[in-house]
Write a protein that binds this DNA or RNA. Structure first.
Lengths: 234, 234
DNA sequence: AAAAATTTAAAGTCTACACAAAATGGATGC
DNA sequence: GCATCCATTTTGTGTAGACTTTAAATTTTT
């Protein structure tokens, strides 16, 4: 067995510090020694310690403030990262064949609830696009989307018959700000029809609002087929 | 107006590269110049470029491979980070008063579905804990949890009458591996009763499995009160 | 005692350089 | 043609040191 190389990589330091937190050697809310001291302890440079602690802070275990030092968070803010794939990728990752179908696309003045939600001025026009995403012939997701025409004038020329509005938007609008929610909703007649489930069925639903520099761009509701689960590991 | 300091911080480089991707100057799937060339272009060191690109890769915009170089991801893998707070924190963040109540805690041999799910050997015993989390007097979450006794023997002495099993576990078991899922389920009689909704109501549900070095530790189902949504911004 | 100015400790970032590790693409051998 | 080996390119990570920025703590002033 070869002698392991010295444990002074930033990864080793991360591991060690984490272990100390978990073993209780580093109590919640307590201060860590400063970077210089740790560098001496691990016999490496401050740069290396810095990277280790910076990443641990990023991952939600530590809180760092200049001059105040580095503190163990009392409630380790574990955070799950969900990759938000495009539907096509998600279906293909399942080994299925992605198929897209446009249901309708038409411009109209924004309904009141939407104006309120996106803080639109009354009477602004929006493009309402509804479409389906299939896994083979099985419904996968029903998408109900509204696009603010003033924010994306090109949408009037867009052709949604072949590709979904999401793919189009991602290519066209370099969005800056997204709010994403997930909830459980109840299938109404429309949704039930498109997803081929009975009315009232619980539906895993996503809502997505996108802004471009403060301007609302799009509001989308995504209704997933029965049995869908969003999963992550960490 | 003072002359802005030269734009060569790693943040500026990130911004610039992102802008180039969004403007189409850097096409999806195309290769970026290598770090040395970019360092020359931005007149900074390779270290700085490295950090910028590393973070962009981390955020899902680029893919980096040694010798192969850095490539623009065709489908920018935007990923949402959801902080998984402890229920207490979540309620308190809403400005509410957290209250906990134990419903039952008893050990038994693992039911078949659980053994299958966690790959337990037949007949292993588990502790079954059910409890409620309230926001004031309003039900917030109903938790149905199973803890593998062989993996956490101390659980036999644990007292869940005052604090929930989740807080206890986090303190006790330095978990290494978590699988977290979210789905929409239908309230059965039990869930409906505890959450004070009518039976059949769609319920936003979380499932969490935790392992410690390959050993299954706990399986939990968390049923959220009606109207719950999990939200993130990025 | 309160407010304002100053000091100072800690993290944040950068430079410049070196060596390590991975993996590609070509060279070599069969 | 196919597999194996090897050189080379590119990212990954480390060292050593400096300067910057933030904000807590102290001192001075009001």
């Amino acid at each position: 067995m070869t002698q392991p190389t010295e444990n002074t990589s930033y990864k080793d330091i991360k591991q060690t510090v984490l272990a100390r937190i978990r073993s209780g050697e580093l109590q919640p809310d307590s201060l860590l020694p400063n970077e210089e001291k740790l560098a001496v302890e691990f016999s490496c440079t401050r740069t290396t310690v810095n990277r280790a602690l910076r990443e641990l802070a990023d991952e939600g275990f530590l809180e760092r403030r200049r001059k105040a030092g580095t503190r163990v968070l009392s409630a380790p803010q574990r955070q799950a990262r969900f990759t938000i794939p495009m539907v096509r990728d998600e279906v293909e990752a399942l080994g299925g064949t992605y198929r897209y179908a446009l249901i309708s696309a038409a411009s109209q003045t924004a309904p009141e609830w939407l104006s309120a939600r996106l803080a639109l001025s009354p009477g602004q026009s929006v493009m309402h696009v509804r479409c389906m995403h299939f896994n083979g012939n099985t419904p996968f997701q029903y998408e109900d989307r509204w696009i603010v025409i003033d924010s994306v004038p090109q949408v009037k020329q867009a052709d949604f018959s072949q590709t979904g509005p999401n793919e189009w938007l991602i290519q066209t609008v370099p969005f800056t700000n997204v709010e994403l929610s997930f909830l459980a909703s109840r299938a109404d007649a429309t949704v039930a029809g498109f997803l081929d489930v009975s009315q009232g069925e619980p539906i895993f639903t996503g809502e997505r609002i996108t802004w471009l520099q403060g301007q609302p761009v799009t509001f989308a509701k995504m209704y997933f087929a029965a049995g869908y689960r969003m999963t992550t590991q960490f």
